[in-house]
């Protein structure tokens, strides 16, 4: 049991790892809601078989102007993620409010290139969650402001490199695994 619980703790960074086989056989789904027997069934939009990425990701500083890259220790460390649909059909924008939106992977490295220290959420992580299912229309962009301070410690001044990624469940690699779409990288500075 202990081994199982320890493994569960690393779920955040393993979002895309285990779903590949099932996804390759998935059914197309045009909407995030279907009605079966009078009941609304929510689920992700799917267009399997894509031959190119479905979306792009970009990140920038967290304020409205996208120009804030310096944060005080203990304050919000916000970045804004923009996901743009580059297909001619709706694509999935589903996720789960679990610490941050768990549909993204939040990657942070310190000045030495080592992964930054994360907050330990317990063993097991008893954090609650709320899934959501949504979509992005063709050519449109949705943004999400993520406070990295909710999952990373950022308790020491320094410069950090940040990147965000998200698996593209419609665009699979030769092994049938979702291709992970990566954003640009940005540098942020944490100061006292």
């Amino acid at each position: 049991m202990q081994t199982y619980l320890s493994s569960y703790r690393v779920l955040i960074l393993s979002t895309f790892v285990a779903l590949s086989a099932a996804l390759s056989a998935q059914q197309a789904r045009e909407s995030n809601v279907q009605i079966k027997n009078g009941v609304k069934i929510y689920g992700p939009i799917r267009h399997p078989g894509a031959t190119s990425p479905s979306f792009t990701l970009s990140i920038r500083g967290g304020d409205d102007a996208g120009t804030r890259y310096e944060f005080r220790v203990g304050s919000m460390v916000a970045i804004t993620i923009s996901m743009t649909n580059i297909t001619n059909h709706d694509i999935d924008y589903s996720g789960c409010s679990w610490h941050l939106d768990s549909s993204y992977n939040y990657l942070v490295w310190d000045e030495d290139g080592k992964p930054a220290e994360k907050i330990a959420f317990g063993d097991p992580d008893l954090s609650t969650s709320s899934p959501y299912w949504s979509g992005i229309s063709p050519g449109k962009t949705k943004t999400y402001e993520a406070d990295l301070e909710q999952i990373y410690k950022f308790d020491r001044p320094g410069r950090y490199t940040v990147q965000v990624s998200r698996p593209d469940y419609d665009y699979l690699d030769e092994n049938g695994k979702p291709v992970v779409i990566k954003s640009n990288t940005i540098m942020i500075t944490i100061f006292d």
Binding site: S14, T15, V39, P44, D92, S94, C96, P131, W133
Partner: peptide, 11 residues
């Protein structure tokens, strides 16, 4: 489960 993909069903 959370962090492992998108579940589905009635909310």
């Amino acid at each position: 489960a959370p962090g492992c993909g998108n579940d589905e069903g009635p909310a």
